[in-house]
Design a protein around this nucleic acid. Structure first.
Lengths: 173, 173
DNA sequence: GTCTATACCTCGATAGAC
DNA sequence: GTCTATCGAGGTATAGAC
């Protein structure tokens, strides 16, 4: 991976996240990365190829984030770590998350692949804690976190830790 | 409002919702609405003008939906009606909601104008029900509903009423 | 139907590493 | 001399606009 390739990936992410995929032209990216436009196509085949390269690079970070939940065995910690996810994302990566949210609607790129195992683990945790309807408890929290992270990433603000502390009390974690 | 104007609005909504704002060309809309492309610009000034006309038309329906919550006085009914919102949206209007979600990211059109009064009313309801931290309870539910409606509109499926019934039990509504 | 701009993309030429 | 990274001048289509 050469320096210019990395600059294309980085600037592509910035611009896609800031202005949207369709609204960003390859010439803009080239200008920002200070490379010739042709180079983008040499390396990434097409504009969409560039997008997928960007997504692939970011996917690792997502996996790491979810690993904290999946690999946890103690049920209370599973829930606690799940709720903590938004706080583990460094601000430098907000752009990537913003892009993910936008792509869900702009193209039909949905990485709900990660959602399923999370849902299973969460359900199991509630079950072990003797909640009456563990699957619905899990679904409830999953929807909450979707809304919460959406609000954070959208507002480019820091997540409100009060809400998190509140939930830890509510669920006795 | 002529027949052709309405067809432009309707087809514009369909296509914007389905393929995104930037990815939809005015010529596509003209073809779908069976009008000349020039007519779009005569009536709506620009592509963005058309978008705003579409949004303005839909705003009324949003207001109606939220009115059920805002105008309610009995605290339990406030919360109940709030949670019911997604179930009151007819499938024929899913396209409009989908467009709203997409625009939040694609352009920076955010109609969180409605969010504030809802938050206040919800907080008050929890307060009257003697919840310890009514503001956080409200914020929690608001985030949940954002995630829930997002999932519904995205999945073009019917909302899961089990989850709603579960929450009515949980909050003793 | 026509205009202008710009979108995505191609490709031959170049330059340096080995 | 081959190979890989790069440049930048086009090409073709289509966008929004009127």
């Amino acid at each position: 991976m050469t320096d210019k390739q990395e600059r294309i990936l980085s600037c592509g992410l910035q611009l896609f996240a800031k202005n949207g995929y369709n609204a960003t032209s390859t010439s803009q990216i080239a200008k920002a990365a200070e490379v010739s436009e042709g180079l983008i196509f040499r390396h990434f085949k097409s504009k969409e190829g560039l997008l997928h390269a960007i997504l692939k690079e970011g996917q690792q970070k997502i996996d790491q984030l979810y690993a904290n939940v999946i690999n946890e065995t103690e049920p209370k910690s599973v829930i606690k770590n799940f709720l903590q996810i938004p706080f583990l994302v460094p601000q430098t990566e907000y752009n990537f998350w913003k892009l993910l949210f936008a792509l869900k609607w702009e193209l039909d790129i949905d990485n709900s692949v990660n959602q399923k195992p999370i849902n299973i683990v969460l359900t199991k945790a509630f079950e072990q804690l003797s909640y009456k309807e563990p699957d619905l408890e899990a679904a409830f929290l999953v929807n909450y976190l979707e809304g919460f992270t959406s609000a954070i990433v959208k507002g480019d603000g820091v997540p409100d830790s009060n809400l998190n502390a509140f939930l830890q009390r509510k669920y006795m974690l």
